[in-house]
Design a protein around this nucleic acid. Structure first.
Lengths: 156, 156
DNA sequence: GCAGATCGTATGTTTCACAGACTATCTCAC
DNA sequence: GTGAGATAGTCTGTGAAACATACGATCTGC
């Protein structure tokens, strides 16, 4: 059986699709601080259940030093707020402002349209299957706390 | 129908899986110049059918100025060679050296193992389905020459 | 032979991620 | 209580990477 003709292709394809996503989403999200990354952070904040910046960073796979100025810029844009946690004053709880929620609602629709366009080569059932497989593959990279810990990573 | 609970998730999941791939592949490919990117370039070179650096860059979605020093380093590592195209002396045809082919053969196996580990949450049939859907989605982003041209990109 | 386009290269700028140090605060032992 | 160590968040510096721009070499068309 030939071994060279069925080369993996998974890695390049993954990165290519990711870059394409960054391209189309970046065009939509140019008003959001830090583009797609800030948008994903805002989405996670709205989804809630993030006691601290550190947990938020762990869930998104972002370094905590990056998370600091990422949230700085989301705050100055009026999309989120830092709230001091009274029970542990080291922690900053991040919550979305009404403006942040409204902005998210508007952008979510357009981003979803762009995503559909990105998967244009697949029919509707296949897109749903792809989303499902992708979601489950990623969830396998998380520990019980939802933190990312892929093999070779430092955390696990 | 609730609109906030089925947020897209495709973008973050895509980027997360891509970053995880870069993490595990980068650990394997730390001896290859420019890590995964150099490896993908080498793989494309071995696959052949790339008349010039520019076409190669277009296929991989890499800027041509980046491609220059990427190939520079692959050449100094002894993995590829620049051949002058006699019919058009502006073009440089990139071919793999025997050492490049051998290196590729060794690394391909390990990278594939890492990929399987990355998709560990899926069973075998699902992994194959995921690879297939991903490959087809990406092929939809290419024009007739194989160049990447996702919506919003400059080229199309 | 000349004008314009194309391939590859070189240069400068900007952005970005990551490591390390630092402050403030919490937890636990005693 | 008090002190040692751990943790959350911030700040600073460094290095890598992408991108635009400009340039020399070569091809194509007239």
């Amino acid at each position: 059986m030939g071994s060279a003709d069925n080369v993996t292709e998974l890695g390049p394809a993954l990165l290519t699709l990711g870059r394409a996503y960054l391209g189309v989403a970046g065009a939509i999200l140019d008003k959001v601080p830090h583009g797609p990354r800030g948008y994903h952070t805002l989405a996670a904040v709205i989804r809630g259940d993030h006691p601290s910046q550190l947990v938020l960073a762990g869930r998104l796979g972002i370094d905590r030093t990056v998370m600091t100025y990422l949230i700085d810029d989301l705050v100055t844009a009026g999309l989120v707020e830092r709230q001091l946690n009274p029970t542990d004053r080291r922690q900053r709880r991040i919550v979305a402002t009404p403006q942040g929620i409204q902005t998210m609602a508007e952008l979510d629709r357009r981003v979803r349209e762009a995503e559909e366009e990105l998967l244009g080569a697949l029919d509707l059932d296949e897109r749903e299957a792809f989303r499902d497989l992708l979601r489950r593959a990623v969830s396998g990279l998380r520990d019980s706390d939802g933190r990312l810990c892929y093999p070779g990573g430092d955390g696990c």
